[in-house]
Each structure stands twice: as structure tokens, then as C-alpha cells.
Design a protein around this nucleic acid. Structure first.
Lengths: 237, 237
DNA sequence: CGATGCATTGATATCGGTCAAAGATGGTGG
DNA sequence: CCACCATCTTTGACCGATATCAATGCATCG
């Protein structure tokens, strides 16, 4: 059954915690199979809008490959980025049947799309799987809180350092022990995520390079030069 | 069975949404009864520490009466307030068996204390109640995201205005249609919640008074003078 | 090889943090 | 009942960090 492995496990987001708190939520084969039956694989090109804030929430998505951003448009026209989503992340948070945020593909992505109603039935039926969903959402709540704390009280360089460290943790460790960090999103996206202006992000990046903590080999590829130094900056709340 | 009504319903937190999104999660009588059996009522005086960050998580709490703050101590010695909790709110978020935040009673409080293990058993057994917990946590995740957005990009007065509006929504509407807002926490707590210094909170309060949007009748009691004007300021992201 | 979006760099103004001191408030004990 | 004390709050002065405005530089894709 080659299709089964296409249903991703739901990994919770490690954030500033190397390994210890990875808490991968792994589904049983039966559960994967059940999800395979109700879901569909979808491939989308970069920049594709996946759904818009306030539109009717029909599906929940799981990222198989690529990167997605979840954001809100503010009245001022600015975009506040709520989350970046990568392989194994779930998204499609809704309230009263409407999506809370808009989501857009950053790179070309492969998603697994689950009809909300069928999923609800499945969860009612399978208490164990529901418990895994609960664990997943609970973990994201923790992360959201933690992020809120970290973002607020920091200088720009500290925020960016934290962000890069976070991206480094998420990245495939395969490559160079996590010292090479892919950053598919734009500076503007990062700014929206960190609550800074894009100019500040740019300046912060320059500062991290000047201090020999990180090297930006290209727009979307950073290399962590001084792991300890970066960790120190991140820890210095 | 007089004891039954002492188990609170789990109300999700309305935030900037007057009524529409109240989404009160109501338990059935059977479910209340089940919770009554495993839980204990606890009364605590103001300022009592309920549990400390990183301590072993044994219980989940539901607020019956009073106000609680959930916060984290930062290495710098500052306190970042993650949430204020009032009647019908749940708290006790844990990770790997340890509490994520510290919590402290702001006023004298009455809590309902549920042993985590017994609760887990109950949830596995009662898929419907588990679903209600899932809904609750999901809602809090939304709120946390929304807060993160609002906090980041705002001037001090705008943040405080948003906070007051939020407190006004939570408050018992009984009193004066929500125009009188109880704020049991200190300025310092508010500062920690909004990511400002306590001086800035004080100045922001003065500004809101100067603009005739709010009157502070005492430290812990605000009256919304110009509802429309305040709403405008809140909406002006 | 433009052209368009994205990124960097610079100059300036503003807002909030910090330090400092004085002013309120509420609780306690004499 | 009042005086005192600890804690919380307000107000002021100053400084620094970041947003904003503006211009230039750099790629990526027709």
C-alpha cells in the first residue's frame, strides 16, 4: 500500500528545545489508512493562495512538503504572519465555520487535504486519534504562548536570532547538523512574523553577520557560524 | 444534588467579538457529575502561588470565581504575563508532565481542581467530552494568535485600549452593559501582558482619559466613556 | 535585456524604556 | 481610630532603538 506513507505524521513544533520536546505525534497504520480514505493529496505552485480569512472552512490541511505561511491582513494593509508551516504541520484553524487566517504557499507545496466533516466523524469514532489531535493543538498553544513572550521584549537582532535558531531546529538535520538554515520566506514575511519592519529585519541580519554569528549565503539560505554565540544571544532574554 | 452546579461550564474567551463568538462549551449533567467526582473545590487567598513553572503537573484547574494570572519569569527578572484567567476558564497547561507557566491568584479565588490522570481516563472514556476539551483548547489557540497579532504592532495607548475592551467583553454584562470594567490586576501585570513597561501603561491610561475614552474611577475600576471612540481606536490596527 | 519585485542602506523623527522622585493606596498594629 | 509602612502608581527628563521615508542595488523571469 504505497499510498499510506503519504499521510504525514503530525509533528509538533520544536522551538528552542533541541530534541527533548520534539513530541512527534505518530499515528497508527490503521489511523493513517483511515485518513488516506477521506483525504486527498494536493500539489500547489508557489504563491498560491490556499484559502482566505473568513471563507467557509471545509478542510483541514497537513503539509507534506514545502512551506506555507498563515497570516492576517490588517486594516492598515500590513500583514501579520501568524505562523510558518512545514512538513508534518497541520493547519486550517477555524472559528464558527470560517477560517481565522489566510494561508498561502511560499514554495511549491504538497498538502494532504481532509474534509472537516469527515474528519470530525472520524475523531468522534476514534478516541485515541482525537487524543492525538488534542495533544497536537495543546502543543501549538504552548508554542504560540512562548512565541508571544519571546517576540515582545527583544531588540531586533535578538528576535531575528531566535527566529533563525528556530528555523534551524525545524530544518532537516541531515544537512550539516542544522547549521545550514533554509529560509524560503521573504524578509517581509519574517518582518510580519517578528513584528518588525522589513528594514529592521535587514539591519538585524547585517548585524548578525557583523558579529560573525550567521552568514547569509543567499537570500534564502543562512549558515550558522557561531552556534554557541547565537544560542547565547537567543537565551539572553 | 446541590454539588453538581459547582462544576463550571468551560467558557471560551470572547475577544473583541461581542457575543457572536462566545462559543460557550457546555457540559451535560452527566459530564458535570463525572467531573464532580474526580475533582475538588479549593479556595485560595489573593496572591497565593498556585503552581510554579516546571513543577510536576498533577492537576488541571477551572476557575469558579476570582482572577488568576499565568506568567513566566524571564532570565532578566521580568515577568511576562501569558494570560489572565477568570470564571469558567481552564488552566494548567503542561508539557512533558511539567507546568509551562507559573500561576498566581490575583484576587481571592475559588478553583475546581481536577487530577490530571483521572481526567485523562475520563476523556478517553467520554469522546464527546474530549471533543469539548479539544474545542476549548482550539479556541484558546486562536485567541493566543490573535493576541500575538494585536500586541505586536501598536502604540501603547492602542494596546491598552484593546486590553480594556477585552476586559469589558469578559465582564459580567449585568453591570451597566459592560461599560464598567473591573481590572483586578496591577499595572505591572498589565504591562507584563501587553509587553510594555508599567510606566508606559500608566501614561497610556492617562492618554485614554485625556481623550475622554475611558475614566479610571479607581485603580481597579475603569468606566468606558466613549464606546464608539474606544472601538475605533481598537479597530485601528 | 529590460522590468518588476525584493533587499539593502542611509537620514530623520518618534515612541517607549529606563532612571529618578514624589504621590496615592491599603493593610496592619498600636 | 489613626498613624505608619509597604506597595503600587504617577509624573518628569533623557536616551536609544526602531519605524518611516527615500534612494539605490540586486536578482529573477519574461
Amino acid at each position: 500500500m504505497p499510498g499510506l506513507r503519504r499521510v504525514p505524521a503530525f509533528r509538533t513544533i520544536p522551538f528552542l528545545k533541541p530534541g527533548a520536546d520534539t513530541e512527534t505525534v505518530v499515528l497508527t497504520d490503521r489511523q493513517r489508512e483511515a485518513l488516506t480514505h477521506i483525504g486527498t493529496r494536493v500539489r500547489l505552485p508557489a504563491r498560491m493562495l490556499i484559502y482566505r480569512e473568513d471563507s467557509a472552512a471545509q478542510w483541514v490541511f497537513a503539509v507534506t512538503e514545502g512551506a506555507v505561511k498563515s497570516y492576517r491582513e490588517l486594516p492598515s494593509g500590513k500583514r501579520s504572519v501568524v505562523a510558518f508551516l512545514f512538513a508534518r504541520d497541520l493547519f486550517g484553524l477555524a472559528s464558527n465555520g470560517r477560517y481565522v487566517n489566510s494561508t498561502q504557499a511560499i514554495t511549491r507545496v504538497t498538502l494532504y487535504r481532509l474534509p472537516l466533516d469527515a474528519l470530525a466523524v472520524l475523531l468522534k469514532h476514534d478516541g485515541d486519534m482525537q487524543f492525538k489531535f488534542l495533544a497536537k493543538v495543546t502543543h501549538e498553544l504552548r508554542e504560540s504562548q512562548r512565541r508571544a513572550i519571546l517576540i515582545n521584549r527583544r531588540d531586533a537582532a535578538g528576535r531575528l536570532a531566535t527566529f533563525i535558531a528556530w528555523m534551524g531546529e525545524r530544518a532537516d538535520r541531515a544537512v550539516n547538523g542544522g547549521r545550514v538554515v533554509q529560509m524560503p520566506m521573504t524578509r517581509s514575511d519574517i518582518a510580519g512574523f517578528l513584528g518588525l519592519s522589513l528594514e529592521s529585519v535587514s539591519r538585524a541580519a547585517a548585524e548578525l553577520e557583523r558579529r560573525h554569528l550567521v552568514r547569509f549565503e543567499s537570500r534564502h539560505l543562512a549558515r550558522i557560524v557561531d552556534t554557541a554565540g547565537l544560542a547565547r544571544l537567543v537565551a539572553a532574554l
